[in-house]
Design a binder for these strands. Sequence first.
DNA 1: TGCCGCAATTAGACAGAGTCCAATTCTTAT
DNA 2: ATAAGAATTGGACTCTGTCTAATTGCGGCA
Lengths: 139, 139
Amino acid sequence: MKTAGMTRETVTARLRAHGIQPTHQRIEIAHALFSRMEHMSADQVLALVNERHAETSKATVYNTLKLFVETRLVREVIVDPAKVFYDPNTTPHHHFFDVESGEITDIDAADISISGLPALPAGKVAAGIDLIIRIRANA
Amino acid sequence: MKTAGMTRETVTARLRAHGIQPTHQRIEIAHALFSRMEHMSADQVLALVNERHAETSKATVYNTLKLFVETRLVREVIVDPAKVFYDPNTTPHHHFFDVESGEITDIDAADISISGLPALPAGKVAAGIDLIIRIRANA
DNA sequence: TGCCGCAATTAGACAGAGTCCAATTCTTAT
DNA sequence: ATAAGAATTGGACTCTGTCTAATTGCGGCA
């Protein structure tokens, strides 16, 4: 995942590759995420895309993030009871979550193995496996 | 964890054992959780304790659940982006979460082993390890 | 028992995240 | 250029959870 050369053109191609009509707003939202490669809340995305001049509404940010999640362009991260974070990193990985600062850090899933999982309930398939290590300052 | 004989007296003793002043409202809230041994949202707790006659306010339910979490009488379960669930089972375990129905099911942690975890960031301690298997209907 | 002081509870206002809707504006294909 | 469908929008709305200031209740003690 090269993040430095993440131009608007690269982002546009990526949207197309996921079958997403690349509109102005979607390009800006994707660019905000992929040029930084950081976990961001909807609010942070909204603030970022409107930094220079307002051009994207709250509704569109929410619509678009939902679309991105559905098309697996980004991943939802549910660790903070107050809000959802969006993660431009879609490779298998887990998270540290600092319960005091709210900071989220990636843990590569390649290094980790989880064994002894029970069978899924009948008729169900796994939609995702989330491992969250909640951490706080050693006091 | 015997759940059948979970009388208000048993619950009261349990509150005392955790250093919690057993008031009316706290007993009712704890009873709602421990007599059912189910994951419940604050809203569900509020509805349950006021089923017969209203006697507990929303503020008290939130205050009390927070207190219970701090004293480790119950556990918070953060899997649903919309709300927090409270889990009367404090033994080490993980969760299935049905993303379609919202249903939460326990997975005993005794059977599971997780290896390859990286070192915690310097100066941090683990406050909890949550493993969530998100499932949905096989279609 | 009666009183004091602190702990607990409360109603209701408030805050923040996220959804919804009907109206408008873009895009794209023709 | 135009029509049809897709995308965007402001703003009202819902829901979860927090806060505050006032009230109520309770335990300890004389």
